[in-house]
């Protein structure tokens, strides 16, 4: 099994378009492939593949919220004073109630509540975990978070475990990661055999690319780069390519700016399916074919692009003044 994570640091630069093309190309060539949408805040692979219903779905519970048991509450109001999130309010009837969207489940309220059992902790649904077989024949694992629920590396790990259960020894797993370099993205990259980075030639995307690239180096992963909309800013495209050469990142291809991409999203199809002859589709298919070649001859690509030296990503530790340990 080979697991490839698609990441970009910055959002909206084409991760899902690239992921969808690779998955589709693999499925068309008869390969066993599983798509994982690891962006639970803004999942969209199911929209690209025109998924309208899920074969399997479950509630994803990992957070807790407090609830005030009205029959035991004496309305002393101490919980409201101490709540660090100001999540407790008084309703029109003078009853104390917890706003469960704001509540973080810290239970500070129950520590000060003088009435035994008046505050209890409930499990809250953070989101949904779901799976289906797309009309293109491959499985898609996806998740979505409810508003205000924090993003979660644990959820991504569950999605990847589900994909592994569906995978066989020679399957390809494509993980479409979230934007940023946070917990979700760390979980998307961790354990992946390689990363494909997607960027567009803007200073913002270039800066984000460098940040997410450092994370791939931390994990000692070989990386490839796809430059989307390369023709809108050729100068930055050149700088990005020079960066890729310097860092031994495999330049997998450039995609031209093409309004076939937004048009394909409107009809809920991958662009290579909806507008196969468009310039972007042709470039995307070339990228996907290169990725298929890499997967088929994994060892030689891995040897060539594997980082030579570990470059662990170390957060800077700032100690309180006067404490020993420096």
């Amino acid at each position: 099994m080979i697991e490839i994570a698609i990441a970009s640091g910055k959002g909206g630069v084409g991760k899902s378009t690239v992921s969808a093309t690779i998955v589709l190309a693999a499925a068309r060539s008869g390969k066993s492939v599983i798509a994982v949408d690891a962006d639970a805040d803004a999942p969209n692979l199911h929209l690209i593949f025109g998924v309208r219903e899920w074969e399997w779905e479950k509630s994803y519970v990992e957070s807790k919220v407090a609830e005030i048991v009205q029959s035991l509450c004496t309305r002393c109001g101490r919980c409201r004073e101490v709540c660090p999130y100001e999540a407790i309010h008084v309703d029109e009837g003078g009853r104390f109630a917890v706003n469960q969207v704001i509540c973080e489940g810290c239970l500070t309220c129950s520590l000060v509540c003088p009435e035994r059992g008046a505050i209890r902790l409930l499990s809250a649904e953070s989101g949904r975990l779901r799976r289906t077989t797309t009309s293109y024949g491959f499985p898609l694992v996806s998740a979505r978070l409810n508003p205000g629920r924090p993003n979660s590396g644990k959820l991504v790990t569950e999605e990847k475990s589900m994909a592994k259960e569906l995978a066989s020894q020679d399957s390809l797993v494509v993980v479409d990661s979230a934007a940023g370099i946070g917990c979700q993205v760390v979980s998307s990259l961790a354990g992946a055999n390689a990363a494909i980075l997607v960027a567009e030639p803007t200073p913002a995307s270039f800066a984000a690319l460098k940040r997410v690239f450092r994370l791939t180096r931390h994990f000692m992963q070989p990386a490839g780069l796809v430059i989307n909309k390369h023709d809108v800013n050729p100068g930055v495209t050149e700088e990005m390519e020079a960066f890729a050469r310097r860092k031994n990142i495999d330049l997998l291809g450039r995609i031209p700016y093409d309004d076939a991409i937004p048009k394909s999203m409107a009809v809920m199809k991958p662009v290579v399916e909806a507008f196969p002859d468009s310039p972007a589709s042709r470039a995307l298919m070339e990228v996907a074919e290169r990725v298929m070649a890499i997967v088929d001859d994994w060892q030689s690509w891995f040897t060539r692009f594997r980082p030579r030296e570990p470059e662990p990503y170390r957060p800077i530790i700032i100690r309180p003044e006067g404490l020993p340990g420096d």
Binding site: V186, A190, G191, H218, F219, M220, P312, Y313, R314, P315
Partner: peptide, 12 residues
């Protein structure tokens, strides 16, 4: 197989 950035720092 792999240590995340925070684990790595703490272990070090």
């Amino acid at each position: 197989g792999a240590f995340g950035p925070n684990a790595m720092t703490a272990l070090e």
